[in-house]
């Protein structure tokens, strides 16, 4: 617990330094934020087109879908802000042998990796997501209580754990094979399953995404929580996230022992 808290404060320090670094290159920071805002508008637009040009998503109205899109932007923004630079940083470090430096710090190296991925360019996406979510909540006349807020926060925490599990898996494999650019693309595409309501998938996949491979924890389940359509499956999703996170740490520790560094 102590280590987790220290890593959290280390994350804040790291983020501060990265913001300071962004400010060194102000133009790049402003352009990056504007571009990420523009790009974040593309996803909802595509979804809208799909919805209006097809039969839509079963069980979802257009307003509910806007809520889903708002939550998606919040999640993608948080994920990219907290871990945006993680994969590229780790690939560079392991390839050049700079990963040694992390092993000389008095913390678990995976902790340092996970807390060093801050990227300020995606703060705009979070803001856009928040704005859309608040608007959708208003238009749907949803009464959001403390229980819903608590459950959404839990979704965020367990969702972060689940996402970190993927990043840990990626870094573990990276330690063994050093380069894996396209595998990263594959992983990213896999995560894209979470960008759609699970109703579009077959029953087996739908259950799997809500329980045992809980991609739904990031966007679908929080949306269902706000729409008051959630059941006990949410608990299974939470527990699964925790288990997958623990398993990823075991895998990481196994890979770390095989680290060979680069020539001196």
């Amino acid at each position: 617990m102590k280590t987790t808290l220290r890593l959290l404060s280390f994350f804040l320090w790291n983020s501060k330094l990265r913001i300071a670094r962004s400010m060194e290159y102000r133009f790049n920071f402003i352009v990056g934020t504007v571009v990420s805002l523009l790009i974040s508008g593309v996803g909802p637009l595509v979804q809208y087109l799909i919805f209006t040009q097809t039969q839509g998503y079963p069980g979802w109205s257009i307003q509910q879908l806007v809520l889903f899109q708002g939550l998606m932007l919040i999640w993608l923004g948080i994920r990219s802000t907290a871990f945006g630079d993680l994969k590229q940083n780790t690939m560079d470090m392991i390839w050049r042998g700079d990963f040694d430096r992390l092993l000389l710090k008095p913390y678990p190296p995976i902790g340092i990796i996970l807390t060093s991925g801050f990227n300020s360019n995606y703060l705009g996406t979070i803001l856009a997501g928040l704005a859309i979510t608040i608007m959708a909540t208003g238009s749907l006349h949803l009464a959001i209580g403390l229980i819903q807020i608590g459950l959404v926060i839990l979704c965020l925490i367990f969702g972060l754990l689940f996402n970190m599990a993927f990043d840990i898996l990626f870094c573990g494999i990276l330690i063994r094979i050093v380069q894996m650019g396209r595998f990263n693309d594959f992983l990213e595409n896999l995560l894209n399953f979470s960008h759609y309501p699970v109703e579009i998938f077959s029953k087996v996949i739908r259950i799997a995404f809500v329980t045992f491979i809980p991609f739904a924890i990031w966007i679908y389940i929080p949306a269902q929580v706000l729409l008051k359509r959630i059941d006990m499956k949410i608990l299974v999703a939470y527990i699964t996230c925790l288990i997958i996170f623990q398993l990823s740490l075991i895998f990481w520790n196994h890979c770390l022992k095989k680290y060979t560094s680069a020539g001196g």
Binding site: F10, R21, E24, Y107
Partner: peptide, 20 residues
């Protein structure tokens, strides 16, 4: 191999190490 943050003054890296 450097542990200094390339874009920031060394004093910032020192402060980070103080924290670590």
């Amino acid at each position: 191999k450097s542990q200094l943050w390339w874009d920031l003054p060394p004093i910032d890296t020192f402060s980070l190490n103080r924290k670590m």
